[in-house]
Amino acid sequence: MSERGNAQPAVLLDHVSKTFEKRKVLEDVSFQVGSGEAFGLLGRSGAGKSVTLKLIIGLLKPDQGKILVLGQEMQTLARDKLGEVRKKIGFLFQDAALFDSISVYENVAFPLRRHTGKSDAEIKDIVQQRLDDVGLSKEGRKMPSELSGGMRKRAGLARALALEPEVVLVDEPSSGLDHITAGEIYDLLLEMKQKRHVTLIAVTHDVAGARKFADKFAVLNRGRIVECGSFQELEESDDPVVRNLAAGAET
């Protein structure tokens, strides 16, 4: 784990561009997230936020530029090496993406069963721990379809954290949730960051929510990074779009 020094950022995007059928989704995007930092990638829907996350974990490959995660260049890694890096990354999808054919418990146990040699008893302890952490101690036997949106998101977070990742990527933590439920999720993320010292990258359009846990921000507009820095820096930005976004968070 020598890469985990402060000298090297946990995640680095270097002049990354991505095009889908002639539509430029990302153009010359560069930012870096230091180890243990909580990073909020802000922007309206369709600004290319989700694509950025998928590029980081290697589900998509950039047309141009370089992506380094924990010192590994994602787009050039062989399949098994890529898997090794991914084990160190937790990903909470927008709609949680729980496997709907197996129970919540099995969803959380899934990565443990596949990637650790742990016994059933050990796995049971860990899963129970994770479910307790997200407040779903009693929902383990339920199927994902029986859960509410917020519970699903929490279950997804439990699964993302199952392997104790170094980097956690969160796609729209608050989407489709009411304020109270969204607030619970933010609290969980903050708690996670404080307890585990993981590197957290969340993409969201909810600037106010992001302020609760993130200490560094970047704003994406039409595929470009228009501002990068602390929340204060956003408020003082020259770009009216960024200022508006930041101002929206105050209300």
Partner: peptide, 21 residues
């Protein structure tokens, strides 16, 4: 139906994200 469902609800991406081919 099952795979298409998994695709559109990002379950396939989730598998990949969990380092599963």
């Amino acid at each position: 139906a099952q795979l298409a469902g998994m695709r559109v609800t990002e379950q396939i991406d989730a598998l990949e994200a969990l380092a599963v081919d």
